[in-house]
């Protein structure tokens, strides 16, 4: 209704700018700049809230253990000792081994999930078949499955067959949540792909193999790669199952960090833990920032927490 008023006033305004029209224009401009300021302040609050704890971890990691509780907001008493402590096997911190374990478990889980999940995702995205909704629902339900419901029987099973603390005992349960995530994310990506191009390539004289190799594979590669990153991150971040089924030799970084020893007896090894946390997190954060766009797409497509 008010839009018609605005319309009629502009016809008048072409000759004599009416007072209300001028006032309305000023109000819009003021509202615009006021909103810009508010957006700016909100943006700063969000960035500070998200980054400050992370920043605090990093500067504490470089702070001398004697100044653990220093409240300066910039790096002070800079040292690398905490990193030495974090890797010190003499103190019982197997961070080096734990990093390798996490890497190995993550790569295996990701490889298995992708190898198997790609086929399912292709079928779910491209083919029509009965019970498709059921299969999708089943896979989505599986990704929401509580980990504790798995560890009790697995704890007993793995103890009985002598797998307790082995790598396979950590890889298999992780598949329970990485595989659904992989299938779901890949399905979403595959749905968006321009599959018509495959047919076009065939018409242009490609064999089916060539069409797949030269057209589909390059198109699908980014999707598969993004899914691989998401799968790897969710495996790398897993704690519950590993904390119960791993041994000292096979424990991943999350478990290692949760049970850390410091250089000073009778003192919580905060600085060393922050150093270990920095080592575990920074590569991940860099990876995420590089592939930011695709990861956001993958996250919202899969809708599953990593």
């Amino acid at each position: 209704m008010s839009s018609t008023t605005a319309g009629s006033s502009t016809t008048v305004a072409t000759l004599i700018p009416s007072r209300t029209a001028v006032r309305a224009k000023v109000r819009v401009r003021r509202k615009g700049s006021a909103q810009r300021v508010r957006t700016g302040i909100s943006a700063i609050v969000i960035v500070v809230w998200c980054l400050l704890p992370f920043y605090w971890m990093i500067i504490t990691a470089f702070r001398d253990v004697g100044f653990t509780y220093d409240t300066a907001f910039w790096p002070t008493h800079i040292t690398l000792d905490n990193f030495t402590t974090a890797f010190s096997t003499a103190l019982g911190n197997h961070l080096g081994q734990a990093l390798l374990n996490s890497l190995f478990i993550g790569v295996c889980v990701t490889a298995i999930a992708l190898l198997i999940g790609t086929f399912a995702a292709y079928a779910l995205a491209r083919l029509d078949f009965r019970f498709k909704g059921v299969v999708l629902g089943l896979i989505l339900g599986a990704s929401m499955f509580p980990g504790v419901a798995l560890i009790t029987p697995l704890f007993q099973l793995f103890t009985n067959i002598g797998w307790f603390g082995t790598y396979q005992a950590l890889i298999l349960p992780s598949i329970s949540f990485v595989l659904p995530l992989t299938v779901y994310t890949l399905t979403s990506f595959f749905r968006e792909m321009p599959w018509d191009l495959e047919e076009a390539a065939r018409i242009d004289g490609c064999t089916q193999g060539q069409a797949f190799r030269k057209v589909i594979l390059p198109l699908a590669a980014p999707a598969v790669f993004t899914t691989a990153i998401l799968a790897f991150i969710s495996s790398w971040n897993e704690y519950l199952i590993s904390s119960q089924l791993s041994s000292d030799a096979t424990q991943p970084v999350t478990v290692a960090i949760a049970s850390f020893a410091g250089s000073q007896p009778h003192q919580e090894p905060y600085t060393a833990v922050m150093a270990a946390g920095t080592i575990v997190t920074v590569p991940l954060v860099i990876l995420v920032l590089i592939f930011q766009r695709r990861i956001v797409a993958g996250l919202t497509a899969g809708g599953v927490k990593g």
């Binding site: 969000i46 992370f54 704690y239 999350t254 960090i257 946390g277 954060v285 995420v288």
Partner: peptide, 12 residues
């Protein structure tokens, strides 16, 4: 910035 808290493992 908002991806940073998401990327950090819950244990950390």
């Amino acid at each position: 910035a908002i991806l940073v808290p998401w990327a950090i493992p819950t244990a950390v």
